[in-house]
């Protein structure tokens, strides 16, 4: 039984078809990579799945909840890292996590946020305004807020893009452990090396259309690399 499922989901912005009749199923406990070039519709997919925008047609279910009808409920149970790491400019990092905790009604925030500050190694930035943080530190903060309430599913949009190699390794390990404990990750990225390394399943999106879905292990068994496979598909379409 998939925890995320879409049926012919589409989104049009004026004349532009950002997502075009996509059918997806994401199984519980998988680290699912939604791959595609810039502008292929990955972010639009995440926004539709979390009820931030409404699809033009088709439907979706996340943990059995319809994001069109119950967008708030979906956003309550999942964790999200949006495409742009934009925490509110005039809150400090610590205040921002406290803000998220209050909105999500999470108890014991002090302890939880301290764990994240230590784990992602930015405790010295706890009292610094978000606008004065580097992009990498903002990315860490956005990562922390997404997992603060221990969600069953995390939908994360390019979460590693601004992180240094040390932190990337740490985050990748976290995601693998998170999935191994029965949770699900829906990762949107165009960095194929990362997807190949950590994803169990993947789908390739190009110009809003779904080109392929499959398992990374199957590719490895065939002796293929994800980036070669990706290039071949995208160039052919």
């Amino acid at each position: 039984m998939p925890v995320i499922k879409t049926e012919n989901i589409s989104k049009k912005f004026g004349e532009l078809k950002a997502v075009d009749e996509v059918n997806l199923g994401v199984e519980k406990g998988s680290l699912f990579g939604l791959l595609g070039p810039n502008g292929s519709g990955k972010t639009t997919m995440i926004k539709m799945l979390t009820g931030q925008i409404k699809p033009s047609s088709g439907s979706a279910k996340v943990l059995g909840i319809d994001p069109v009808k119950e967008g708030i409920r979906v956003r309550e149970v999942v964790g999200i890292i949006p495409e742009q790491e934009t925490p509110p400019s005039f809150l400090t990092s610590g205040e921002y996590l406290s803000f998220v905790a209050k909105i999500r009604k999470i108890d014991g925030i002090e302890e939880k946020s301290d764990w994240w500050f230590d784990y992602l190694d930015f405790a010295d930035k706890k009292d610094v305004l978000c606008k004065d943080l580097s992009r990498g530190t903002r990315q860490k903060l956005m990562f922390a807020q997404a997992f603060l309430h221990d969600p069953e599913i995390a939908l994360i949009d390019e979460p590693l893009i601004n992180l240094d190699p040390v932190m990337q390794r740490k985050v990748k390990k976290f995601l693998k452990d998170y999935v191994e404990s029965g949770n699900t990750v829906f990762l949107s990225t165009h960095i194929l090396e990362i997807a190949e390394e950590i994803c169990t399943d993947f789908a390739i999106l190009h110009k809003g259309r779904l080109l392929h879905t499959g398992k990374t292990d199957e590719l490895k068994e065939k002796g293929m690399h994800l980036d070669d496979f990706f290039m071949e598909l995208v160039e052919r379409s």
Partner: peptide, 13 residues
Amino acid sequence: FDSISAYYFLPLN
């Protein structure tokens, strides 16, 4: 002065 995109992905209408 602040974009709500900073917190619209939270459970808020």
